[in-house]
């Protein structure tokens, strides 16, 4: 048991935890905004997966990680646009459309990857993002190694969370977003254009999910593997609830899940009597437990998941 409590084990564990939490932070910040506008973007998982592949393709053929990541963001946004059209314009059920997007993404990515790279034993690879040491801060013992020796997307993710909170709480656009998710009819009567705001919710969330996907393939792995988002998009939905629709709190919730994920990988690698499936399931078990423990007394946006019909009497 002692081997777990050494600095040599714990510091890399937490550092990996921070890395693993990045897709969750990005995705849940996007989801917070989407849900605040009243739309539930269940297709987050699919958007993340598609973006993981598209960003990898982008980076592989252009040789530029930055371009690859941008491709990832845009592909996520584009995928979200499909949901937005069906749910905002055609007023379809958001959950059903989201599930369709997720199923579509699995088939689509498998097909596209094989069409481009074929079935080979040597995987196509790209360089991964380099870590950037933040001067001074990275010299702090322990904390520095865990938080301030990471790649650029880690910092961007946290900054985005703070920035998003600021926009939501302090600007008129944030107020419009909140009003649209709480009471679209009242929002409209106050001059807010509900449809564009909800479109924005979908597209922003898609873009963030896209960056999250890009982070997986181009940020830490350097390759694309089948179904590499592996349910992270769904965990983002749980993070959003746990964080009570607050982007900064979602950073904390994401850190918890990220750390469990990092731990799970290490436990697997160390070899144990338990079958590896148990460890793979660990993050999801923690998700369920935490929703059970902390998921009470929450106020979801009142119009969440309800299509808005302008002329309904």
């Amino acid at each position: 048991m002692n081997e777990f409590l050494t600095a040599a084990f714990l510091i890399p564990l937490f550092a990996a935890g921070v890395r693993m939490s990045v897709p969750l932070i990005l995705g849940s910040v996007g989801e917070v905004v989407a849900e605040k506008t009243g739309v539930m973007n269940i297709g987050l998982e699919g958007q993340m997966l598609i973006a993981a592949l598209i960003s990898f393709i982008g980076a592989y053929f252009t040789g530029s990680l930055a371009l690859g990541i941008l491709c990832g963001g845009l592909s996520g946004m584009l995928t979200a646009l499909i949901s937005a059209f069906w749910c905002v314009n055609r007023k379809q059920d958001q959950s059903v459309v989201g599930i369709m997007v997720n199923l579509f993404a699995i088939g689509f990515t498998n097909f596209l990857y094989r069409a481009i790279f074929g079935v080979r034993t040597d995987r196509a690879k790209v360089e991964i993002l380099e870590s950037i040491k933040i001067p001074v801060l990275s010299d702090i013992p322990v904390i520095g190694e865990i938080f301030f020796d990471q790649n650029i997307l880690v910092y961007i993710a946290v900054l985005m969370a703070v920035f998003t909170l600021y926009v939501l709480k302090r600007t008129r656009f944030g107020l419009q977003i909140e009003a649209t998710g709480e009471n679209p009819k009242a929002a409209r009567s106050a001059g807010v254009r509900v449809k564009p705001v909800r479109y924005f919710g979908y597209m922003f969330c898609g873009f963030m999910a896209g960056i999250a996907g890009a982070f997986l393939s181009c940020g830490i792995v350097g390759a694309y593997t089948e179904n590499m988002s592996a349910g992270r998009g769904f965990i983002c939905l749980a993070v959003t609830i746990l964080a009570r629709w607050n982007p900064v709190l979602s950073v904390l919730a994401a850190l918890l899940f990220g750390t469990v994920q990092a731990l799970q990988l290490r436990l697997q690698a160390m070899g144990s009597e338990l079958p590896y499936q148990f460890f793979v399931a660990l993050p999801y078990i923690v998700t369920l437990l935490s929703l059970m423990l902390f998921g009470w007394n929450i106020h979801a946006p009142k119009a969440l998941g309800k299509p808005y019909n302008e002329e309904q009497r």
């Binding site: 302090r170 008129r172 107020l175 909140e178 009003a179 709480e182 009242a186 106050a190």
Partner: peptide
């Protein structure tokens, strides 16, 4: 049937009507 966003204060409900730039701090 009142057109108020129930979770927001009167001030915020009224701010919604303002027609100034969206992204400037209110």
């Amino acid at each position: 049937h009142f057109m108020l966003v129930e979770v927001l204060s009167a001030i915020d409900n009224i701010s919604l009507l303002e027609d100034d730039r969206l992204f400037v701090p209110r």
